[in-house]
Each structure stands twice: as structure tokens, then as C-alpha cells.
Computed example of a mutant assay.
Amino acid sequence: MVRGVRTQTSVDRAAAVKAWFAASFPGRCMRRMYDIDGRNRAITLAGQAFIALIPLLVVVSGWLSRDGTQQFADLLIEYFALTGSTADSVTALFARPPDATGGLTLLGLVILLFSVGSFSRSLQRLYELAWGLDPAPRLRSTASGLGGVLFMLGMFALVGWIGHLLGPAGIAVQAVVSVPLWLVLIRLELGGRADIDGLVPAAVVATVVQLAAGWWTHLYVPHLIAIDAARYGVVGVAFAIVAWLVIVAYVLVGTAVVGYELSVWMRDRGITATMRSWVGRRVPHSSRQEGP
């Protein structure tokens, strides 16, 4: 009898702990990650990025450098500070044959556009699911999705360039630049169906994780490329790039989920309303001081 009571008590405690964790912030994040099938979405995004964004960047770099002085391989080598045989492997992977002429064929261009469109729809659907929204109308979602992808590439390039230019001292500048850019990007992906103040926590989370992932990339990815290139040659560079894209995709999925749950947590505790009222009081005050 005593053993049965102890067993029931243990079961009740375990159920209470489970219920407490499910209602906690980490528990809600894990639940939403499960609900949106975050693992498979990250793998899908990484694969689509490899077959869509990498060719797109190769084409863009070729267009920006018609004389061939600055190709995509050069950009990767410079960004990751690659040297020696590793740099040679990257060059061989993306090198254009010396007797190649012309640009993309019409079929190649169509496939590239479809690939980019598929990636943009997957990225947009990720944010819609994280925010619990239904899919946007097809025409509207296509326009905002493609705009979001182009904006994201430009944002990553700008933030990376600031970090490359200023080094560790540029982290504060990168943060100041990144937060409003993430606000715009998330709002684009959601088709404008979310208030700006509700997106601020998600933008801050995405900025912090982006900066951490960026510095991790500079420290670890060159080592990863060097190891895979030494083991498998040119194909190893492709393996390393895919692994890097998988990590980036998990970062996108994780920041979307955590950002939304943080915005809900702040809203439920009145923090968002307090911030809104504080900004509302400050803006008229500033306007009165700026007036004649």
C-alpha cells in the first residue's frame, strides 16, 4: 500500500513537472518547433538554398564582373580567408571553363527562377507557420517572398561587409544596422500581417543569433572546408557548403520560433503595451521640442 502511494506520488510529480515545462518558455518553443516540423523545414531550406541561391550568386557575380576578375569563388575565398589547396579546390568547384561563351540558356534561367521561387515560398511559409498565419494569396506571396529573399541576401552581404571592414569593433554597428533590417525582412515574409512592435523581439533575437553565427562561421567554416577538401577534393567543398547551409537554415527556423514565442511572452506580461505607451509619450514630446 505504501509503495503504491509512493508510486502515485512520483507519477503526480512527473506530470506536474511535465505540465510546468510545457507551459514554460523553452517548452513552448520546443512545442512550436515540433508543430511546424522545424527539423525537416531546416533541411528543406538548406537543400533549396544550395540548388537556388548558390547558382544565383554565381550568376550575379558573373554579371557584376564581365571581364572575369571577380567571380563567386573569389568572393568565397576572400570571405572565409582560404589559402593554399583549399582555395584551389573552391576555385575548381566554381571555375568557368576557359572556352565557355555566353550566359545562361533560356531553360537554365527558367529552372533558376523556379528554384529561387521555391526557396522563397518555403522561407515565407516558415514565418507564416511560426506566427500561426494562413498562407497569403498566391500573387501577393510570390511578390513578397521574392522581395524577401533579395532583401535577405542584401542584408547578409551588408552586415558581413561591415564586420569584415570593422572587425570585432563593428559588432555594435552591425547590431544597430541589423535590427531594423530584420524588422523589414520578417514583415515582408509575413506579408505585412503583423504589427511592428510585435516583431521587435523577433528582430532582436535574429540579430543576436546572426552575429553569433557570423563570427562562428569565420572561425569554424574555413576549418570545415579545409578538412572536407583534403578528404574528398573538390566535392568536399560542396559537402562543407551544404553543412554550412544546414546550420544557417536551423538558425533561421530557430530564430523564427523563439522570436514569435518571445513576442507572445512579452505581450502576455504587458511589456509590449508598456513599450508602446512609452514610445507614444516620447514621440509627441520630441515633436513639441522640435517645433518653433
Results as ranks from 00 to 15, higher is better:
Leu106Gly: 00
Arg269Gln: 01
Tyr127Gly: 02
Gly167Ser: 07
Val235Ser: 05
His218Tyr: 10
Leu188Ser: 08
Cys29His: 08
Leu106Cys: 03
Gly214Glu: 01
Val264Asn: 03
Arg193Met: 05
Lys18Ile: 05
Trp278Phe: 07
Trp244Phe: 03
Val176Phe: 10
Gly147Ser: 08
Asp99Ala: 15
Arg96Phe: 11
Gly191Cys: 04
Ser287Thr: 09
Gly147Leu: 03
Leu150Pro: 08
Asp12Asn: 10
Asp197Arg: 09
Thr9Ser: 06
Gly154Lys: 11
Pro168Gly: 13
Val11Ala: 11
Ile171Lys: 10
Leu126Pro: 06
Ser24Phe: 15
Val110Gly: 03
Val209Pro: 01
Phe119Pro: 01
Tyr34Cys: 09
Ile111Leu: 04
Gly259His: 08
Trp20Leu: 13
Gly148Val: 07
Ile111Cys: 02
Glu78Thr: 08
Ala175Trp: 10
Ala157Thr: 14
Arg13His: 14
Ala169Gly: 14
Pro97Phe: 12
Gly259Ala: 01
Ala238Thr: 05
Asp67Val: 06
Ala92Trp: 07
Ala16Met: 04
Ala19Glu: 13
Arg66Thr: 00
Gly291Glu: 07
Met266Leu: 15
Leu107Cys: 12
Asp268Asn: 14
Val209Phe: 09
Leu93Pro: 00
Ile271Gln: 07
Ala73His: 13
Arg121Cys: 04
Thr83Tyr: 04
Leu57Gln: 12
Ser85Thr: 06
Ala273Pro: 10
Leu185Pro: 05
Leu158Ile: 15
Ala243Gly: 12
Phe94Glu: 00
